[in-house]
Design a protein around this nucleic acid. Structure first.
Length: 495
DNA sequence: TCCAGGCCAGTGTTCTTGGT
DNA sequence: ACCAAGAACACTGGCCTGGA
């Protein structure tokens, strides 16, 4: 007890910086809060381990008073890491602290400093220090120690039985280092806080806001920053994308056609998927209800590349071959994401690729119909009242086999999408159903369009109707940066 | 002017992390 | 296993834009 008294006096001396840590038996049972087994107190010169399992010590009035005095004394700086948990255990150990609640004074929680440090490093461009989820991940206090002092902590004793006596040498060493490293880290940080992106006064670092409003502001700001960065980097592969984009892009030295690029889009990237289909890329998209792992299953089964974003990237990447999973910045606009993907894979895009694939179902086969046939069908469906100039035996024509041409469309307007063309027999003249069984979506064609648009394209899988319009020009403009405008393709098509 | 589609921001829920 | 904090995700409504 005499040694204990010396210890108490030493730590309550003014001007000390004390590393404080506590250990209790990891409770995997029903007990929500565990009683403390060991309190570690470290100063620059030495470390004391206060063994609360020692007979009589835990409930000695001196011990309780010492703890109360130490933690409320403003002239002694206490360092901890994640001290809210420690406070709960203190109350569980000494219920009297609940009746007369402890008010921490002169306490610096290095967890908050660590969070500030992480935020700062995340914001930096260029190479970053090791972070959670990168490499052989250190975390928590061990990560902080590695980032500040250069070496991680050995946490193998962290979950050991702290109630068993005597403590093993490894436990004693771990307990001592756990408290001492707090002092070491603090001194390194306070010697040159700017080098770590921290304010001169470490005590001014506030905990990450728990208030929803502040959190939202941060999220909002982060989004804005990300969008800004995305704009600044334009189409260059910069920042976080580099790591994941690299693996695949370097495989494609020569350019490829959009049709050769086959991807599966995670459900967060449906906008991107639509853009890619617009230029002819073979895109499968996950539904909102689909699990992310469905993307990996499809990718393996069909040899597709996964496009994803956010956290799912980590798990999806490990489920497919290296370089077969690409992550994108979800805050980036869908168009910019698409441009990034096309540039990354060195896709050779021509105007004929625009709208060469149905954006609704990903089919790349169309049936071309002249205005007269479209008018007749709409008339029969009662969608228009106009009479149609009589043409020779359209129904008969439908039955006739037209040569199936995979590269050249039937004679028609200047616009020639790079797709497959179905024969006229693919359309049932009576049911208005196309080869895939879907009914032609006549109701989506505005009647006012018929006098102006001479030809219509019908998706043979879903029956969606497309026609020439201003969409094509817009798409050309959107992809102008990477479009190879070698031919004089100026026709337009529109849904 | 109306309508459809996309984008953005707000909100609530779920998941992950890190402490013992 | 439990707790707290933060991140990620899902959903929704308002706003904006462009075509009809």
């Amino acid at each position: 007890m005499e040694t204990t008294l010396v210890c108490f006096c030493l730590f309550i001396s003014a001007g000390h910086v004390v590393g404080v840590d506590m250990e209790w038996r990891a409770g995997f049972g029903t007990v929500s809060t565990q009683r403390i087994s060991l309190i570690q107190l470290a100063v620059k010169e030495r470390v004391f381990l206060l063994d609360l399992c020692a007979p009589g010590l835990s409930h000695h009035s001196l011990t309780v008073n010492f703890i109360r005095t130490l933690l409320t004394n403003t002239s002694v700086l206490k360092l901890g890491y994640g001290m809210s948990g420690d406070l709960r255990s203190l109350v569980a150990t000494w219920p009297e602290l609940k009746e007369e609640p402890l008010e921490f004074k002169g306490v610096l929680d290095l967890l908050h400093v660590h969070q500030q440090l992480q935020r700062c490093w995340r914001g930096r461009a260029g190479p970053r220090p090791v972070e959670v989820n990168e490499g052989p991940a250190e975390k928590g206090l061990s990560l902080l120690v590695q980032q500040v002092l250069g070496k991680p902590l050995d946490k193998t004793e962290q979950l050991s039985n702290w109630e068993r006596r005597p403590l093993r040498t490894g436990q004693v060493r771990y307990a001592a280092i756990d408290a001492y490293c707090l002092v070491d880290v603090y001194q390194t940080l306070s010697a040159d806080p700017k080098a770590f992106g921290l304010p001169d006064d470490l005590h001014s670092v506030k905990p990450s806001s728990s208030a929803k409003s502040d959190s939202d502001k941060k999220t909002k700001e982060k989004r804005k920053q990300t969008a800004r960065r995305a704009r600044q980097s334009a189409l260059g592969c910069a920042g976080d994308q580099v790591e994941c984009v690299r693996g695949i892009g370097e495989q494609h030295g020569a350019s490829i056609t959009p049709q050769e690029l086959r991807v599966v889009c995670d459900n967060m990237l449906q906008g991107l998927g639509r853009y890619l289909r617009c230029v002819g890329v073979d895109v499968l998209m996950l539904e909102n209800t689909d699990d992310h792992k469905v993307a990996a299953q499809i990718a393996r089964k069909e040899g597709r590349i996964i496009l994803t974003s956010g956290q799912p990237f980590q798990s999806l990447r490990s489920q497919v071959a290296e370089g077969r999973c690409l992550t994108l910045d979800c805050s980036e606009k869908a168009r910019d994401q698409a441009l990034r993907v096309l540039k990354h894979f060195n896709v050779h895009l021509t105007p004929s690729d625009i709208f060469s694939r149905c954006q609704a179902c990903n089919n790349d086969e169309y049936l071309k119909l002249p205005r007269e046939d479209m008018t007749r069908m709409m008339n029969r469906r009662g969608l228009i009242q106009d009479t149609v100039p009589k043409q020779d035996g359209w129904e008969n024509q439908c039955g006739a086999q037209v040569e199936y041409n995979r590269s050249r469309p039937p004679d028609g307007p200047a616009f020639t999408p790079h797709c497959r063309w179905a024969p006229r027999s693919a359309l049932d003249a009576h049911s208005f159903r196309v080869g895939g069984g879907a009914e032609v979506q006549l109701e989506t064609v505005p009647p006012g369009l018929l006098p102006r648009i001479p030809e219509y394209f019908i998706c043979t899988r879903c029956g969606k109707v497309f026609w020439e319009g201003t969409h094509f020009d817009r798409a050309l403009a959107q992809f102008h940066d990477i479009l190879n405008l070698s031919d004089g393709d100026t026709a337009a098509r529109k849904h």
